[in-house]
Computed example of a mutant assay.
Amino acid sequence: MFDTILVPIDDSPGSERAFEAAVTLAKQYGSAVHVLSVVDEHGPRTDEWDRDGDSPAAAFVDEHADAVSADGIDVTPAVREGVVHEEILDYADESGVDLVVMGTHGRTGVRRYLLGSVTEKVVRLSDVPVLSVKADAEAGEVSFDDILLPTDGSSGAEAAIEPTAALASTTDATVHVLSAVDTRSLGIDVGSSVIIDELESVADDAVATASDRLYEDGVDAVKTAVAHGIPYQVILQAIDDNDVDLVVIGTHGRTGIDRYLLGSVTEKIVRTAPVPVLTVRSPDAGDEA
């Protein structure tokens, strides 16, 4: 599933945690790893920068690449200059990567470091899955024993099923399939009760479809739930209740579609979830920025 992994790095804690996660996944899947540093063309410039020479950026990338190579992993170091998120996306496309692993500052709100300010852009625009790892994640190798798969039955949600199955079948993880029924805009009347029943039916169908697909793809342990509430809060609560190690969630990407709940809450989950989040872009998303 993840034959080639791209991990953009800077010297932030989130970047280091992302690097560790990328190495762990590479060991599990026998993946090749590309370690990339992007020098922001709009950032401060010094005479030390030399794209073809022994620049600080190149030395930093080589140090990390050597660590990956020492583990017997095929590794490619790279340094680029430009608009950071655009260079990451272009590199991913040119190199045919299957997964991008990036650090994010999450709840800390720290904006000092480069990658913390561009991860959400990459999440929204990437054609391949993006694993976002928090700066305050525990150092060391990561493990995914309990995976949360939120679903609303949309194409974005369905796109997240296959990567979830690939991860769970490799790690023997339990997958928790969750659908949230958002009733905030409904009043208390007979009509609302009918609409709630319909929303619950849609949620039940979404959960059943996802769980059936997971079983078909070789996942042995699947738990399902339908909960009422604000979707992103329901997801955060499920993370806490089930000791979840990873959230896999769909995104509509460039289209900006808000029809389905996942299109409107994925970025909130990336910013606020206390665990890594794997975002998967819907295959039918458009190309509008």
Rank of each mutant, 00 (worst) to 15 (best):
H176Y: 15
T171Y: 03
A166R: 12
A135Q: 12
I188Q: 06
H176N: 10
A160K: 00
A166P: 05
V118K: 11
S132I: 11
L131R: 06
D136R: 00
T170W: 07
I161D: 01
S143Q: 13
S126Y: 07
T183L: 08
E158C: 08
R184A: 13
P150W: 03
A137S: 13
L115P: 11
S143G: 14
A165N: 02
D136K: 00
T151M: 11
L115C: 12
L167V: 15
V130I: 06
T119I: 12
V123I: 00
A173Q: 10
L125R: 13
I147H: 00
L167S: 04
D136F: 00
P129I: 05
T151P: 06
T164A: 13
L115V: 15
I188D: 08
D146Y: 01
T119S: 13
G140C: 06
R184I: 10
F144G: 05
T183H: 02
V130L: 07
A157L: 05
E138L: 12
K121H: 15
A166C: 10
G156L: 07
E141R: 07
P163W: 04
E120T: 14
G140F: 03
V130P: 07
D152W: 06
E120L: 13
T171H: 02
L178H: 04
E141K: 06
V123T: 08
A180Y: 09
E162P: 01
V142I: 12
I161N: 06
V122G: 01
A157W: 07
P163C: 04
S143A: 15
A135E: 14
S132A: 15
T170V: 15
E162C: 05
D182R: 04
S185D: 07
E120W: 09
E138K: 13
L148H: 03
A165C: 04
A166N: 09
D146F: 02
E120G: 11
S185L: 05
E158G: 11
E158L: 14
A168H: 08
A159P: 11
S179K: 13
A173N: 12
L125K: 10
L131C: 05
T171Q: 11
F144V: 03
V177R: 11
L167I: 15
I188M: 06
D127R: 13
G116T: 13
G156D: 02
L131G: 05
T183N: 07
V122P: 00
V128C: 07
A166D: 09
K121P: 11
S155E: 14
V122T: 09
S143M: 06
E158Q: 15
H176F: 10
I161Q: 08
S126E: 01
D145W: 01
V128P: 09
E120Y: 11
T171R: 10
K134C: 02
A168C: 08
V128Y: 14
V181C: 08
V130N: 04
E158T: 14
D127L: 01
V142Q: 07
A157M: 02
F144N: 06
K134N: 11
P129Q: 00
S117P: 05
L131V: 09
I161H: 09
